[in-house]
Simulated scan of single mutants.
Amino acid sequence: MKMAILEGHRSGPHAPHYRTLQAMVAFELRRGRVGLRVLPPDQPPSGSRTLLRLHRALKWLELFLGKLGRSGAEEDPSQLCAEAYQAALARYHGWWVRQAAGLAFLALPSRRELYGLVCAEGEKEARAVLLDAVGTISRVYNITQQLYATRGLLELP
Rank of each mutant, 00 (worst) to 15 (best):
R33N: 08
L117S: 05
A104H: 08
P16N: 05
H9V: 02
L21P: 11
E62Y: 07
L117Q: 07
L65Y: 08
S71G: 00
L29A: 02
T20R: 03
A128M: 07
V97R: 08
P16Y: 06
R33W: 14
L130M: 15
A15L: 05
T150Y: 04
L54N: 13
T50E: 02
A133M: 06
L6R: 03
F27G: 10
A87H: 06
K2W: 12
L103F: 03
S46T: 14
R91W: 07
L65F: 08
L68E: 04
Y85A: 08
T50W: 01
D42H: 15
G94I: 12
P40G: 10
Y115K: 05
F27D: 11
Y148I: 07
A120D: 03
I137N: 05
A126Y: 00
Q79S: 10
S138M: 05
R70N: 13
V134Y: 15
V25L: 08
R19H: 05
Y148D: 08
H55I: 02
A23N: 07
L156E: 00
L52C: 01
L154E: 10
Q86M: 12
G72D: 07
S110F: 00
L61A: 15
S78P: 01
A26G: 06
L106N: 03
G102N: 09
D42I: 12
L153A: 08
E74V: 05
D42C: 09
S110H: 00
G8P: 10
G135R: 12
L52I: 01
L6T: 03
G72C: 06
L29K: 01
G8I: 10
L65C: 11
Y115E: 12
D42S: 13
Y148G: 08
M1H: 13
G116W: 00
H14I: 03
G32A: 09
T150C: 04
G69D: 06
S78V: 03
D76C: 07
K59T: 03
L54I: 11
D76M: 03
M24R: 13
C119Y: 05
H14K: 04
T144H: 06
V25S: 01
L154C: 08
Y85R: 07
A57P: 00
L29N: 00
Y115T: 09
A133Q: 06
P45L: 02
Y148E: 14
S71V: 00
P45D: 01
H55N: 04
A57I: 01
R70Y: 13
L58M: 15
S11R: 12
T50L: 02
G135K: 15
I137V: 09
L6I: 14
H93L: 10
P44V: 10
V129D: 01
L130N: 09
P77N: 09
Y92F: 12
Q22S: 09
Q99V: 11
R19D: 06
L80G: 08
G12H: 06
F27N: 11
S78Q: 03
D42T: 13
L68G: 01
A120C: 03
L108H: 00
R91G: 11
S48A: 14
L36H: 05
G47Y: 04
Q146P: 10
L6E: 04
L65R: 04
R127Y: 13
V134W: 14
G32R: 14
Y115P: 01
D132V: 06
A4Q: 03
G94Q: 06
H17K: 05
L63W: 13
R49G: 06
T150L: 05
